[in-house]
């Protein structure tokens, strides 16, 4: 643990308890919650794919409540302008001065709903903010307050009139997460909890107890970034990503950013597993959400209905784990 940021045990425990806390409000999506935690602690952004009504907004609201952060939501539409995201300068009649009106991107947790409904220009405005952690309005640059986590969603079933994110922009997301229907038992519990004493369909996050303060997240991210990682683990991640480029059935493999993202996510995985070092299992667990949107399948596999996860699982089974 060379250069390890020393944090008190209480903060670490509270951070690790975040997942359990959010699961109290978002029932039936443990995998999605876990993967969002990975993104939060590794300072990345998440692209969520799933049909509407599965609790994406509730998830981000719950997370915002648990970390006491500022939450914003943008519904992407074909007529959404970049300034609707970043903000704009307006003339204040009272003070007779130009005043900056900051857009919804100035927050800690941003839900970009149906990001593929807007044209590339608008998408770029958000993706630039994600990458640079800053926003430029009329030539003036405004840094975003950390932590800044974007959870962008895509609906896989209604593709008419959408602007699919190009590969280069998909690469900006640390993880791509699939949100599916909960199992029957969990859905039953969720429906019971949500409807008990509820009026209308407002999202109830009152059950969430604040676990962290927003300004503690950057400390935790720094801690995670310095977790012990053996040379063999780095070698394993590189071998996995390099193999993916030449793997049968993959037309375009991930770039070095994929390897970097894989190691970042694996560190966060180790942190959530309450370890101070990364194991090959962490790499394997993080591999699917990190790599699935960074590869493009060959046409014949796509026609046969294969998914990137099928090919990646094959890859993970066949690439030898590290030797010690």
């Amino acid at each position: 643990m060379v250069g390890q940021v020393v944090l008190n045990e209480d903060l670490l425990q509270r951070a690790r308890g975040l997942e359990t806390e959010i699961a109290r409000a978002v029932i039936g999506q443990p995998q999605v919650i876990h993967e969002v935690m990975l993104a939060l602690f590794s300072g990345g952004h998440v692209l969520v794919e799933g049909v509407p009504g599965l609790g994406k907004t509730l998830l981000v609201r719950s997370l915002a409540a648990a970390v006491q952060g500022i939450f914003s939501r943008i519904q992407f539409t074909p007529d959404l302008m970049p300034s609707d995201i970043s903000g704009h300068i307006m003339f204040d009649m009272k003070s007779e001065n130009f005043r900056v009106r900051k857009g919804p991107v100035f927050c800690n947790l941003l839900l970009a709903d149906e990001i593929n409904r807007s044209p590339a220009k608008t998408q770029s405005a958000l993706l630039e903010a994600m990458q640079e952690q800053q926003v430029t309005i009329e030539g003036r640059t405004f840094p975003l307050t950390p932590p800044f986590l974007v959870l962008a969603t895509q609906n896989p079933i209604e593709q008419e009139g959408t602007y699919p994110l190009p590969q280069a922009q998909l690469d900006r997301f640390l993880l791509k997460v699939f949100i599916g229907y909960p199992v029957e038992r969990e859905e039953q519990a969720m429906v019971k909890q949500v409807t008990l004493g509820a009026v209308g369909d407002q999202l109830d996050t009152s059950a969430i107890r604040p676990q962290l303060k927003a300004d503690e997240i950057p400390q935790l991210q720094a801690h995670v970034a310095k977790l012990q990682m053996d040379e063999q683990i780095i070698n394993y991640a590189v071998r996995l990503v390099r193999s993916a480029r030449d793997w049968n059935g993959i037309e375009a493999g991930p770039g070095p950013r994929g390897t970097i993202s894989l190691l970042r996510a694996a560190r966060a995985e180790a942190f959530l597993q309450q370890r101070d070092f990364v194991t090959p299992d962490d790499i394997k667990l993080a591999a699917l959400p990190v790599l699935r949107h960074r590869i493009r399948l060959a046409t014949d596999l796509e026609i046969e209905g294969y998914q990137p996860d099928d090919v990646l699982n094959d890859l993970l089974d066949n690439i030898p784990a590290p030797r010690q």
Binding site: T279, P280, D281, K284, L316, D317, N318, P320, A321
Partner: peptide, 9 residues
Amino acid sequence: ISEGATEGE
């Protein structure tokens, strides 16, 4: 056990 299995697996 497959060749790619980790310790955890």
